[in-house]
Computed example of a mutant assay.
Amino acid sequence: MTTLLELEDVTAFYGPVQVLDGVSLAVPEGGAVGILGANGAGKTTTLRAISGTVRAGGRIRFDGKDIRGMRPDLVAGVGIAHVPEGRGTLGSLTVRENLRIGAYRRKDRKGVEADIEYCLELFPNLKERYRSHGSALSGGEQQMLAVARAVMAKPRLMLLDEASLGLAPSTAKNVYDAIARLRRESGISMLVVEQNANLAFRLVDTATVLETGRNALTGTSAELKGMDEIRRAYLGG
């Protein structure tokens, strides 16, 4: 399987504090890879290093091209959509306007309209709230809108940061069910940061566990679920 994204010995700092210390991972074309770890392990920083919102060292290659150090807008332009922790929806704009902003780079008007309809089918709650402002949505609906807005950019790779954070279990399951469907139907590759490993393992093929900014374990979902330390730390077992 062709590698779409490759990180090799990636480092990152916030001021004098080193957060990533040689992180390496790969996401295949059409694949889904998880990043697990405790708070402060470097999960979010890894996504930020890819999307260009934090300065990074090492190598970050996307479709064979070096993207380390690129501005975030240029990273988005090569086909990477980042759904950040905290959702980042534009509260003063309606659902419709948020979706259209996701497609601001696109020139295919008919394709944009078709993708809006697809997103509303994928997330029926958004169809019901289509004219509502982002600030009026529930937390779950805001998360759905954040994912849908990323879909509108027609990315090749989606970076998902804690999509279940702050959501009721049933809502989180609905969000992940829709993301799994999106993966099946679109072929978008995904790099998924998630505290809820039970949800993550339903979506991803492989995962990497980070500890203090370094790779600690890497394996398939089945392999990691079978490890006692993983069950105790992330699966409540």
Score class of each variant (00 low, 15 high):
T2C: 15
L4N: 02
D9E: 13
A12L: 00
V19T: 10
D21F: 10
L25D: 06
E29D: 15
E29R: 15
G31Y: 00
A32F: 04
V33A: 07
G34K: 03
K43G: 07
T45E: 11
L47P: 02
A49P: 03
A49Q: 01
T53V: 10
V54D: 09
G58E: 02
F62K: 08
F62R: 09
G64I: 12
D66P: 12
D73T: 11
L74R: 13
I80N: 00
I80K: 03
T89E: 13
I101E: 13
I101R: 14
D108A: 10
R109A: 11
K110M: 15
D115P: 05
I116N: 05
Y118W: 05
L120E: 10
F123G: 05
E128F: 07
R129P: 10
Y130L: 10
R131S: 11
S132Y: 12
H133M: 13
S138N: 08
G139A: 11
G140D: 08
Q142Y: 06
Q143G: 02
A146I: 00
R149C: 13
V151L: 12
P155I: 01
R156S: 11
L159S: 01
D161V: 03
D161Y: 00
A168T: 14
A172W: 02
K173I: 12
V175T: 02
R181F: 13
R183Y: 15
G187D: 07
V192E: 05
V193W: 02
Q195P: 13
N196T: 06
N198V: 12
A200V: 06
A200I: 01
F201K: 09
D205H: 09
V209S: 08
V209N: 00
L210P: 06
A216M: 12
G219W: 03
G219L: 00
T220Y: 06
E223N: 12
L224H: 04
E229A: 14
R232N: 07
G236T: 03
